[in-house]
Amino acid sequence: MDWILGHLDDIGGYTVQHAWLAGLPLLLGLAVAVPLGWLARRRSWLYTPIVAGTGLLYTIPSLALFILMPLVLGTRILDEENVIAAMTIYTVALLTRTVADALGAVPDDVVAAATAMGLGPVRRLLTVELPMAVPVIAAGLRVAAVSNVSIVSVAALIGVPQLGVLFTDGFYRDFLDPIVAGLVASALLALLFDLAIVALARVLTPWHRTPAAARSGSEAPS
């Protein structure tokens, strides 16, 4: 306990770094997953290759991916870009299917009405389909956020500082305090991400917060 109180600055710094390495890839991954998911929906023959292909990326062991990144990107092994890129790949793996299925769940009559009113494909995506897909995409993002917070700690093994460093430190020194501190900080960070996504989704979906019509309700006077 004394150790934790004495190292609050370090723990705080690692937490901020951890949030950055887990959080930025969420945004980048979403930015990649949306066009991919959209493409999978627009061209039905692309659905299986895109969704299955991106899904497979999640099976790559994280340590291997962190080590492979410098070879692919031409970065140095200690650069945080490696971690950001790798985490973005995992986010894309988790989100592409979610985005494709969320877009697919937009009712046909709504899509038909939008098309018939003269909305082009891109405008329809941005102003009708994506807004309606927010609740489902947000659910996928929550999974990806927790997954990212958890996986990022592995990057301690290639020397990129974040909360994972506390685990390796505790392990090498056979000392429990840093490990406990890392676990608690990770859990709190995951919770924070989760709450932020839920709050954002709520703000973006005002129509979900209004009570439905009484089914027995009478018709408007004519």
Partner: peptide, 22 residues
């Protein structure tokens, strides 16, 4: 142009197809 053509034609469908988010 399809988009221009459609903006000049009113379209009503069975379940109204209203935008639920607007």
């Amino acid at each position: 142009d399809p988009a221009r053509l459609r903006r000049g034609i009113g379209y009503v469908i069975q379940h109204a197809g209203l935008f639920p988010h607007r």
